[in-house]
Design a protein around this nucleic acid. Structure first.
Lengths: 110, 110
DNA sequence: GTTCTATATATAGGATTATTATGTATAGGA
DNA sequence: TCCTATACATAATAATCCTATATATAGAAC
């Protein structure tokens, strides 16, 4: 598991990434993030819900109540057109961060 | 430049990394981090000083006042033995985070 | 000699984001 | 009937970085 101080800021990219595969509700997002990162990245629902509200407020995702096959009420989120456009730039910023940290490591491996 | 929300958490690794090259004072750390990351990673001194106090409290670095050749008083920080041991595990966590985010991207590039 | 810029440290106040803890509620199996 | 998994929600707290502000000196420009 990755320390909270280090994974800070990844939740947004993680949520947007899993939503690229199609609409999902919160509980399922948490499950997929954990599954797809082989357990490295794990978020509690208490982290994800406030994040989803923020993303909805920004217009990047839109949530809609639906009733599942089992009769359970849940809130299904999908990426908006605007939200889709944000993913690539965010990924680029993460890539730049990785390069920056690699350079720091390289220079000071001394 | 990288958005503050994304670079959050990198300051600690950045500081420890530049200190691997030898003792430094705060102002010079900021300069080197910016230089070595080609401007991608930039921290204000107001971010670095509190961080240095935290690191000193944990026993990872030790600061000592010195008077530079120009007669300017400054606080020079060096890695402690304990601090040196922490760097590798932290880098491993960052590497794990990168792998996790790459997997998320790959799976959901759809 | 005074003003400007670079050097150098310090702290208060605020923003963001994740965490723990808690609460509600239902479906399905033991 | 009880337990577990599913599903959403919010309050209180913690951590980390930012902007703004303050202080002070060295050296160059004027």
């Amino acid at each position: 598991m990755i320390a909270p101080g280090i994974k800070r800021g990844t939740a947004e990219l993680a949520v947007l990434s899993v939503l690229e595969d199609g609409p999902l509700h919160g509980y399922e997002m948490a499950r997929r993030i954990e599954e797809q990162t082989l357990g490295s990245l794990r978020f509690t629902l208490a982290s994800l819900y406030p994040l989803l509200y923020r993303l909805e407020k920004r217009g990047w995702v839109r949530g809609a109540w639906e009733t599942s096959g089992t009769g359970r009420r849940r809130r299904c989120y999908r990426l908006t057109t605007e939200g889709k456009k944000k993913i690539a730039p965010i990924r680029r910023e993460w890539a730049e961060l990785f390069r920056a940290l690699k350079r720091l490591t390289k220079v000071s491996h001394a």
